[in-house]
Amino acid sequence: MIRNQREAGLDFRRPRRLNNLGLRIISGIILGSIVLGITYYGGIAFHLMIAFFACALLYEWLEMAGNRVQQRSRIVLWLLLAVALIPLILNMDASIVVPVALAAMVLGVAHEARQSGRNGIWVSGGIVYALLAAVSVDQIREGAAAGLAAMVFLFTVVWTTDSLAYVFGRLIGGRKLAPSISPSKTWSGALGGALAAVIVGAAVGRLMGIEAGFLLAVAALVLSVVSQIGDLLESAVKRRFGVKDSGRLIPGHGGVMDRVDGLVAAALALYLISLLTGGLHEPSRGLFFVF
C-alpha cells in the first residue's frame, strides 16, 4: 500500500515538514519580537533577558557534554555563573561587571582543568561562552540611543548574513566552506552573505543617523565574517560532543545556542571594537554616535 501511495504521488511526510517549517516561522517571529521589544526598552528587563540567555547557553553546553561533567563541576560552574550575573542584573558599573565575569571564567577553567585535564577545558568552555555572550551584549546596549543603535546594527548584520548566506548558497552553490565541520555551507553563501550585510548594515546605519559611514561598513564586514566563524565554531563544538543540536528549548529551531552562535561571536567582536573607539563606559558611543 505504501508503494502504491508513493507511485500515486502521495507523500505523507510532507505535512510534517510543512508543520515544522510553520513552527519555525511562528516561534522565530514570537521570539524575535520579544527580543527586539525588550532590547528597545532596555533597563532591568534587558538585563534579565541577557541573564536568562546566559543560563540557557550554559545549560545547553553542559547537556551536550553529558556524562563528561561531574556533578561537583556542574555546581561550581552554576555558582560562578550566578555570581558573575549579579552585577550585570543590578546594572553595576562596567568596572565591576567585566572583572567579575573575567574572574568567574578564569576560575571555571582552572577548576575544570584541575578536575579533568584536557576534557575539563572543553567542559569549562560553557561558562566562558555564556559570560562572553552576556557581557558583550549587555555592555553594547549601554549608552541610551547609541546603545540601541549598536544593537539594531548588530542584529541587522547578523540576521542579514545568516539569511542571505543561505539564499546565495542555495542559488549559486559551489565549493564548500568547511565540509568537515558544516557540509552545507559554501563559499558563495559566505561571500554573498557578507556583501549583503555590508550593504544592509550601512543602509540601516544611515537611516539611524550614524555619522561613521565608512567605519560602519568596515565594522559590518568584520561582524559578518566573525558571525560566520562563530557558526562554524558552534558546529565544531557539537561535533566534539557528538550531538546534532545544542538543545530543544526553541520549538522548531533546536537550542538557543543553535540560534545565537553567530550573534555571540559578532557581539564579542563589536564589543571589542566599541571598547577601542568608545572606552569601557558606554562603549557604543564611540562608533554609534547618533546625531
Rank of each mutant, 00 (worst) to 15 (best):
K176H: 03
A149S: 13
G193E: 06
A104M: 06
D138S: 14
V157Q: 04
F155G: 01
T161H: 12
V200G: 03
L131H: 02
T186M: 01
V135E: 00
L164Q: 09
A178C: 08
A149N: 09
Y166H: 12
A202Y: 13
A178Q: 05
V158N: 02
E142R: 15
V109M: 08
A149W: 09
V106L: 13
G189D: 05
L154D: 01
A130L: 04
R175Q: 09
N119H: 13
L131P: 00
V137T: 07
L107V: 03
F168Y: 13
D162V: 04
G173S: 02
R175L: 09
V135W: 01
V198T: 04
A103I: 12
R175P: 00
A145W: 14
A110Q: 10
Q139M: 14
F153A: 01
G117L: 06
K185V: 01
L131C: 00
E112T: 02
A178P: 07
G117V: 07
A196W: 11
F168C: 11
I181M: 13
A133Q: 08
V106P: 09
A130W: 03
Q139I: 12
W122S: 07
A130P: 02
M151L: 14
G193V: 06
I172Q: 06
R118G: 01
I127P: 00
S182T: 00
Q115G: 01
E142D: 15
P179S: 04
F153R: 05
E112S: 04
G201H: 06
S124T: 04
V137I: 15
G192C: 12
V158W: 08
R141E: 05
G108R: 13
G193N: 07
A110K: 10
I127V: 02
T161S: 11
A145R: 15
M105A: 00
A130D: 01
I199N: 05
L131Y: 04
I181V: 15
A196G: 07
A194S: 13
A110P: 04
A144N: 14
S163I: 05
A196R: 05
G108S: 11
I181L: 14
L171E: 09
S163D: 04
A150G: 15
T186F: 00
D162F: 10
I121R: 13
F168A: 10
A203F: 13
T156K: 09
V200H: 09
Q115I: 08
V152F: 15
R118M: 09
P183L: 08
V135F: 01
G120D: 06
L132H: 02
K185F: 10
A149Q: 08
G193F: 08
G120V: 09
W159K: 10
E142Y: 15
V198K: 08
G192T: 12
A134V: 05
A190D: 09
Q139N: 13
A133D: 03
